[in-house]
């Protein structure tokens, strides 16, 4: 058992500040355990959002010593304990209270993305056939737990607060999962370019670095989507083909 000092963001009527707490750490504890212990013993009203404490629900995102992480998956033994450990709410989103942020913009943006639209079933019993090798890549995207750490660290959202202009890495991954779904027949390239704001991403890969599910967001989702958008809108041959196929569909 060792006593560790934490500095945790607490809000008050006129803003907020880091407040210091000391608590005893035992073997195997994660940061969320320490926060819970402080909450139960010293600060019953300290707000923290959490559900599963198993890295599966993506609720307890925060900035620990400045690094965007899930509190439930950050082991105390991996943290330097000779100086205070700071815990700050995600900075890209407005704070509701203490460590809890308002992430509702993410739900709004997701709703704007065109939903899954499957091709007609392959078999008379209404089922489809898909090869495992064709779904491997979207299964990677579907691992996303919607912790929004990628949104938090994306400078377009974090520094420039362009939440309404750029859907952000989470929704690029979401769109990629739809666009690359073998059954999906919808075309989302136009919305990616316009309302999605894919051009805002300049591939700094910060999102990939913080993803607790280790999804290679930039390389596997965003860049291929950028290529699709470029093919559709900037490649003269593809534009011609698109025009042709559109006519064909319309008659």
């Amino acid at each position: 058992m060792a006593s560790v000092t934490f500095q945790i963001w607490r809000t008050h009527a006129s803003g907020g500040q880091l407040q210091e707490y000391k608590t005893e750490i035992s073997e195997g504890m994660v940061v969320l355990d320490a926060v819970h212990q402080i909450q139960a013993e010293q600060a019953n009203d300290m707000a923290v959002r959490w559900n599963c404490k198993a890295g599966k629900c993506g609720s307890c995102s925060a900035e620990i010593n400045g690094h965007p992480k899930l509190m439930c998956m950050t082991r105390m033994s991996d943290m330097p304990q000779d100086k205070p450990i700071t815990i700050h709410p995600m900075k890209a989103f407005p704070v509701i209270r203490d460590l809890v942020t308002d992430v509702s913009v993410n739900y709004r943006m997701k709703k704007k993305i065109k939903k899954f639209k499957p091709r007609p079933p392959d078999a008379p019993d209404g089922t489809w056939r898909m090869a495992q090798s064709d779904i491997d890549r979207i299964q990677e995207f579907r691992k996303c737990i919607e912790c929004f750490l990628c949104q938090d660290v994306c400078h377009v959202l974090r520094e420039h607060q362009l939440h309404e202009e750029f859907v952000g890495p989470r929704h690029m991954v979401y769109t990629a999962a739809l666009e690359m779904h073998p059954l999906d027949v919808e075309d989302r390239r136009e919305e990616l370019k316009n309302t999605g704001g894919i051009g805002f991403c300049n591939i700094t890969k910060c999102c990939t670095t913080v993803c607790p599910e280790h999804i290679t967001i930039t390389d596997n989702a965003i860049i291929p989507l950028k290529e699709r958008v470029a093919d559709r809108f900037y490649d003269p041959l593809m534009r011609l083909l698109h025009l042709f196929s559109k006519k064909k569909n319309n008659h």
Partner: peptide, 20 residues
């Protein structure tokens, strides 16, 4: 379960492409 597939779920597959 099949209905979930129609709504976009991506289950692991058998060798002949059905739900494993």
């Amino acid at each position: 379960v099949r209905e979930l597939e129609a709504w976009g779920a991506v289950f692991d597959r058998t060798d002949d492409g059905r739900i494993l």
